[in-house]
């Protein structure tokens, strides 16, 4: 059972083809890594899947809804964490969770206990009433992820969630991702860190808007005769003609 399906999905900005006929599937419950150099088209592809950007051509569905016509249904069933930290900095941790909980239709009386158990799990309970802007970056990212999966979406899209975060916090972040996957949430994650690619069930590697490789990390290493995912990535990225930006 696939939660994401795309067929020749394309996005053009004028004469520039940001995403070039990509076709792939993501199975329900898997952790799907979406790799690629800067400017390879990862974020654009992800924005189309989230209903933030209209595709130029091709077809696709997310959580059983069409990415052209049913964007609002898609939005009810996904979580999204953007590259840029985007919780409200002038609201407290609790207020941010309450806001998004309310928006996704969680019942008023359920929000409070769920907030407490979430914060307890994160070890944030003491920061419940702190303004988000006072938190360190690693905590912000973890909070941002927790808010994105607070409403138990079918799939969560993470756009470079660990950018600029130290290795130990990244490790903790991935533990959160595994916990979410255990709850049955499909994880669609873009990253630059090749060690993170190893944590995924399957990875796709985008080069110049195309998907040049898609398989489990183990099989990709075998196929490209490399000991690490880094080697696989270097091998593919060398063929890129697009300038990184």
């Amino acid at each position: 059972m696939n939660i994401v399906t795309t067929e020749k999905l394309t996005k053009k900005f004028g004469s520039f083809t940001a995403v070039d006929h990509i076709s792939f599937q993501v199975a329900r419950g898997e952790i799907f890594g979406f790799l690629g150099a800067n400017g390879a088209g990862k974020t654009t592809a992800m924005r189309m899947l989230c209903g933030l950007s209209k595709p130029t051509s091709g077809t696709g569905s997310v959580a059983g809804f069409d990415i052209y016509r049913q964007t609002e249904d898609i939005k009810r069933n996904i979580g999204y964490m953007s590259q840029k930290f985007s919780l409200y900095e002038d609201l407290t941790v609790r207020e941010n969770i309450r806001l998004y909980g309310g928006i996704y239709g969680i019942k008023e009386k359920e929000i409070k206990p769920r907030t407490d158990s979430l914060l307890d799990e994160l070890g944030f309970l003491s920061e419940k009433n702190s303004l988000v802007k006072s938190l360190p970056l690693g905590w912000k990212q973890k909070l941002s992820f927790s808010v994105a999966v607070f409403h138990d979406p079918g799939i969560v899209f993470l756009d470079e969630p660990t950018g600029g975060v130290d290795p130990s916090t990244r490790r903790q972040f991935w533990e959160l991702i595994y916990k979410a996957a255990d709850r049955g949430i499909t994880v669609f994650v873009t990253t630059h860190y090749m060690d993170e690619a190893e944590y995924c069930d399957r990875v796709s590697i985008m080069v110049d808007g195309r998907i040049d490789a898609l398989d489990s990390p183990g099989r990709l290493r075998e196929q490209y005769e490399s000991k690490t995912m880094d080697g696989v990535f270097q091998h593919l990225a060398r063929n890129a003609t697009r300038q990184a930006d």
Binding site: C50, G51, L52, E72, K75, R76, I78, Y80, S82, K84, F85, S86, L87, Y88, E89, Y100, I103, Y104, G105
Partner: peptide, 13 residues
């Protein structure tokens, strides 16, 4: 700030 984009991926009408 980018918070608007976050709102745009929610089902808010």
């Amino acid at each position: 700030k980018g918070t608007m984009e976050q709102m745009n991926v929610t089902p808010v009408k």
